[in-house]
């Protein structure tokens, strides 16, 4: 095993300098630096970037990185929320508080507006997640956004494992696997033609465990529903759904009050809670480490539709 031992060269260099280099190699610090680099590249090269912000944990983490990337100056981008109308009150309250606290500008695209004027039709199952794509693309076009930050991570799903950090979308917002550019070193190529835009994923290389460990390290505040609380829920398709404006239990579904938390936060009609007593970030980390299900598999009906569900939605212009 001599080949694996530290070389004498390494030992001879100043300890302080070695310590600084080691600190930069710490997993979370390395991911943070990479994310900040991506934010600054976009600020330097694009005219009209926007951050997708739902108040969920990944978009809250995005905002946290953006704040750190430009500190002590304010974040130089507005936020965009595509609002399905099927929200958890706690998340909307949190969203608005963050916007006010950091002096940001929030644009909200209400899916309801698209349904009201006939551009979209409500689905028979009442789920509105798939309806977000059209309002998102329309809003990108209307505001001429050329870079759209999303909180997508490659570990979430197999179709996302091949996503670039800078993901080129055509004038229809579509992702074409064959047109994606090779990403070399930390040199990102954001060139695009008029009408096209780039989706940017600063959290590409983070895993769910990294996200939670970083939230703990940085003491990032999240909406309360990520932690265990009592809630009236009913069972559907193997998930615990909650009552809300999206509809409640059907006749054969009984409501129970359980201690639950949410691992992901999306459209209320298709986001399930998990039974959990994890009330602090440390308890959540322990639970995530012991979990035998992916967060999407556990809590998102929309990803269960088919094996290639995500690939299809991405091609249509979804994140």
């Amino acid at each position: 095993m001599t080949a694996l031992s530290e070389t004498s060269e390494t030992r001879e260099t100043g300890e302080a300098r070695a310590a600084a280099a080691d600190a930069a190699r710490d997993n979370l610090t390395a991911l943070e630096s990479e994310g900040m680099h991506v934010f600054r590249e976009v600020a330097g090269e694009f005219d009209r970037p926007v951050i997708l912000f739902s108040g969920g944990k990944d978009s809250t983490l995005l905002l946290h990185l953006a704040i750190k990337a430009f500190w002590p100056a304010p974040v130089p981008f507005p936020l965009l929320h595509v609002d399905t109308g099927h929200n958890f009150d706690e998340v909307i309250e949190f969203r608005d508080r963050m916007v006010a606290q950091h002096g940001l500008r929030l644009i909200v695209a209400h899916v309801q507006d698209w349904i009201d004027d006939g551009r979209l039709t409500e689905r028979p199952d009442g789920t509105r997640n798939p309806l977000q794509t059209q309002p998102l693309l329309d809003t990108i076009t209307e505001h001429k956004f050329d870079a759209v930050f999303g909180g997508g991570r490659r570990d979430e799903e197999r179709a996302r494992a091949k996503e670039r950090i800078f993901s080129l979308r055509n004038a229809f917002g579509q992702w074409e696997p064959r047109r994606q550019r090779p990403e070399l070193w930390n040199l990102y190529n954001g060139r695009h033609r008029p009408g096209e835009h780039v989706r940017v994923f600063p959290l590409s290389n983070w895993t769910e465990a990294d996200v939670w460990n970083y939230i703990a390290r940085e003491r990032v505040e999240l909406p309360s529903i990520y932690y265990a609380h009592r809630r009236k829920v009913y069972r559907r398709d193997g998930m615990w759904l909650t009552e809300g404006p999206w509809g409640g239990p059907r006749e054969n579904e009984t409501v129970e009050e359980l201690t639950v938390r949410y691992r992901t936060v999306g459209d209320g009609s298709c986001t399930g809670a998990v039974e959990s007593t994890a009330a602090t970030v440390e308890e959540v980390i322990a639970e995530v480490q012991a979990s035998r299900l992916t967060e999407r598999g556990a809590t998102r009906a929309d990803d269960r539709l088919s094996e290639a569900a995500m690939e299809d939605r991405k091609r249509e212009g979804y994140f």
Binding site: R17, A20, R25, S33, E34, K68, P72
Partner: peptide
């Protein structure tokens, strides 16, 4: 400088 305060030293890879 960083958002977490000034640093005595920073190494390669650090933003």
């Amino acid at each position: 400088d960083t958002a977490d305060g000034p640093r005595d030293e920073a190494g390669s890879g650090s933003s």
